[in-house]
Design a protein around this nucleic acid. Structure first.
Lengths: 416, 416
DNA sequence: CAGGATTCGTTCAATAACTGAACATACGCT
DNA sequence: AGCGTATGTTCAGTTATTGAACGAATCCTG
């Protein structure tokens, strides 16, 4: 936001701002007439009319025809988001590859999931498969007449968005992989913006945009921390409806929070990290379940399902392990909340599946450890997208650029 | 920033933005001619001229007369910040009360410090003294012809900026004190905006604006975490030149980060909190120095000075205590950095005074525990304002509102 | 020392975009 | 059928930036 400050505001800046304002209004509150939009935004009916004209001409809004709303007065013609441009999300994970195509309205146009163990084969081959899957999604989108707004790739690990590098993805066995360059080279998507982000971060955005969470007063949930349990433990920080990525995109690394100086040894070289209590492998080990090949969240028959089944059946070892994980997680989340002062925690990934057994121990720790708990009560909710969050978030993130800057999008597509 | 999105941009919005742009340019890079400002901001010379006219008329800029810069071409007339409006900061602390008056250029007009033990007397009396000190500062500022832009009050504790309440200030023994209302009632400053914030937060802003820190490449330091050691341990989070306060202003509570489940008991009811290793009282106790009356940072002859003297003299108990505090602090800071991904830590308050003995252990822990350390090296620097930070930050914060929104300031002062 | 080169700041017509009011349109109600 | 009401468009008016032209002030050069 400070970046905006250093750029001059010319006349067209007004237009840009107000176009986005109108489009956002429709996106948030659904179809509405010009008059209603004017009232809601504070713009004049006249202005809204001209803005709507350019948005309709640009394929971002469409008229629904005379509204059937009964009432006195001339009925307005409702305006809704046009399907218009689409965004594509690609998720590369340990044991599957997923793509997702989403249009402006947020509806999913296409989903694909390729299951395969990617922890075993090298980055080269994974990237080839990923590029093929992406290519298929893009071709399909274009065949369907959609204009491609962008692509966002989700990877579990330490991701440097600015350079497009995957710095460290322990579960994939990657280190300093130039993912963006490789993907671009293998798909040849010229002119299409391709971005990269952490899987937990994108799951956070998915939860923000696609899950329809609401606070107690009905307003949308716009600030929260999503903790995502996989092999590691990651967190997405969403503040005022925006993802907080940190200076280089490395925010939310909560997995190696030290809990006990003499706890179990961690692969990071220290002891007693959160991951050693609440990570997937630790959880399985402590629950007494056999350690299988590395697998992520919630495949049927997978290890997490067995964990869930054990908990449901009342297996005392499983219940104890999950409770301990919940307590450890609660300590970690309390630390994050003390630092960030957000009031909502979303349990994601693995934790969404184990939520029934986690909510209580987590909540207990929060009540005990959040310094401002007396004045700022915290809420624990469960992810509604589960393992889908990251791809959904990625695809929506891609198409959302149009919503954020319709003016830029319009000029770009007119040029092309 | 999302808040801005929901408001229509009218014609005057351009003016507001560009006025701020021009004023910021002068504030950041010092006196400059109209032509230079135009080049730097990207605005036209014509536009800059009219903007400068209104800023000069409003008393925010002044002409320095023909510039003596040698060179071909007609010399420009340099424009500099006018002293113009002033901001007043008031700090209420455990053993002193401080006020500070700062003008637009950032220079301190007046400082006052009243030493007294405020931990012993109730809020009522403290507020009366504080109001008197504030009243004196305001009267003095007005007598000097300055127009008062605002007042900011700094308090060590959990502060709810939105309501003006001090929720919890353990060192003062306060709980749910309606500070803003009380101060307003006792000073009768009608029409002057009075705000409230946490002492550590304001020290962070002081460091941001008044200390002239620079990164390795010479650019100003705009993202950092300031850890401030007093009786408790607090942190200010500054991101992209803006203070991050959290949803309700409770961010940065790092003092009760759990380090060891079986560590020394803490007044919060749990064990092994950071405060029990790195807080002032714990530090004194562990160093084997007598526990005196509660006193804050760095009064000559005070306990912190004795600590410093002990370390300088090489007292092994003191050195061991300080090193342990540094290690504990390092763990806490590493946690914050893993979550936030900032690259600089500022040691403030007590820690600024003990910095020579802290930098090494803190740095060691950061190298070991920051997950992204290999790609995102962290830097530890020392506060340059020390105990002055909070008042300076508060006063500057007050006057900075004018810099952020000159247009609003101009209309407000014309009305008055 | 006169003329050219160069940079600074102002003036003025042109342009972009929002506003407000007036007006035509379309519907429900009596 | 006619009135009241809400919608959407048209048009003149206002605000603020732009671009180009111009006078002003200084340095450099022959």
């Amino acid at each position: 936001m400070s970046r905006t400050r250093s750029v001059p505001a010319r006349q067209p800046s007004l237009r840009e701002h107000n176009l986005a304002l109108v489009l956002h209004e429709v996106a948030r509150r659904g179809p509405a007439s010009r008059a209603r939009i004017a009232a809601a935004t504070g713009l004049t009916k006249a202005t809204v009319s001209t803005l709507v004209d350019t948005l309709v001409a640009g394929g971002l809004l469409r008229e629904l025809g005379p509204a059937g709303t009964p009432g006195v007065g001339r009925p307005g013609t409702a305006l809704a988001l046009a399907a218009g441009p689409v965004g594509v999300g690609l998720e590369i994970n340990v044991d599957y590859l997923a793509t997702c195509t989403v249009d402006l309205t947020g509806s999913v146009r296409r989903r694909e999931l390729v299951a395969e163990d990617f922890g075993r084969i090298g980055p080269e081959q994974v990237l080839t498969r990923a590029a093929a899957a992406l290519r298929a999604a893009v071709d399909d989108a274009r065949a369907g007449g959609g204009c491609l707004a962008g692509v966002v790739v989700a990877v579990p690990g330490l991701v440097e968005a600015a350079t497009g590098l995957v710095r460290l993805a322990p579960n994939l066995g990657w280190r300093d992989v130039p993912l963006l360059a490789e993907i671009s080279a293998r798909t040849g998507l010229d002119g299409v913006p391709v971005r990269l982000d952490n899987e937990a971060n994108l799951a956070g955005l998915g939860e923000l945009w696609c899950a329809g969470h609401a606070r107690a007063d009905g307003s949308p949930l716009e600030s929260f921390v999503l903790v995502s349990g996989e092999i590691g433990v990651g967190a997405a920080i969403v503040l005022d409806g925006e993802l907080f990525t940190g200076m280089r995109g490395f925010s939310g690394e909560i997995g190696h929070l030290p809990l006990a100086p003499d706890g179990p040894p961690c692969r990071c070289g220290r002891r007693g990290c959160l991951e050693q209590y609440a990570g997937q492998e630790a959880l399985l080990r402590r629950a007494g379940l056999r350690q299988p090949a590395r697998t992520t969240t919630g495949r049927p028959g997978g290890p997490v399902e067995r964990l869930r089944a054990g908990a449901t059946a009342g297996d005392p070892r499983v219940l104890a392990a999950v409770r301990e994980a919940g307590e450890a997680l609660g300590v970690g989340i309390a630390t994050a909340i003390n630092l960030l002062d957000v009031d909502t925690v979303v349990l994601g990934g693995l934790y969404a599946l184990l939520a029934p057994w986690l909510v209580e121990p987590v909540g207990e720790q929060l009540d005990r450890r959040v310094v401002a708990a007396a004045w700022a009560p915290t809420r624990v909710v469960v992810s509604r997208l589960g393992a889908d969050g990251a791809v959904r978030g990625a695809a929506t993130h891609a198409v959302r650029t149009v919503l954020e800057d319709p003016s830029g999008w319009l000029t770009r597509t007119v040029r092309a």
